[in-house]
Amino acid sequence: MAENEIFKIIEATVVSFIFLIAVFVPVEKVFPAKKNQKFFRSKWVLDFCFFIGQYLVWSGLVLWMLNNFGDYLTSIIPNSFQSKIGNQPYFLQVLEVLILSDFLIYWGHRLQHNIDFLWRFHKVHHSAENLDWLAAHREHPIDTIYTIGLINLPAFIMGFPLESIAGIIAFRGIWAIYIHSNVRLPLGPLKILIGAPELHHWHHDLDRRAGNYANISPIMDVIFGTYKCPNKEPEKFGVSEEIPSSYLGQIIEPLLPKRIWNKIKTKAQQRI
């Protein structure tokens, strides 16, 4: 990769970081969910490492894998099926893509909390003890590939041109960061249609099976009985199990069998 291209990626990362600060920091200051939480709260650097890692390293790898996955799906799905889908009215296709991806992400996410193998990657995201817009980026790359694969699956299968709903997708992306922010700004009756931090904060409660698994709209949670919205903030966020405190530790630990990880940990402790 040429020097110029590396510079462009770094530039885009810096622009994104500044933009996200401009969007979320004022609203976190004026409508805080946890009033005493500062901008540079504990583990800020760790979450910043995840942010940088996601933008500079992992997003490229995720896109590459997703592209290959999409190619593979296209090769096995009959063209006649995709043209039948494509002949439906446009608004119906949009509805199908959004509802199916919400359905898949709901169940995929619920499985992440119930199946130990998936949880070992997903718990990295839940290990954040302070929630804000930056903590939304704490995510293991394997977890990201799983989530993005699921959310894109209906569009891949249907052969749906996602560029035609680019605005909706962009909204979904930024709203997913918003629901992690340290904000308490009740949406009133709208909260049944669009997720809000007050709901997602409960998903990050210490309880591994706390509910609120839906992506943007909480409707799936309502339908499947996992909707939870008490009129207060959870006391604590995070996970009840032990998790490495460093960036590399959180990336490597889920990839290794427990036995090997424990050996590495013991050796490292002996050195200290």
Binding site: S16, Y55, A136, I151, N152, E163, I169, G173, I177
Partner: peptide
């Protein structure tokens, strides 16, 4: 710009 796993890829 804006990397989010909860978003489709464009």
């Amino acid at each position: 710009i804006i990397s989010s796993s909860k978003s489709m890829i464009i």
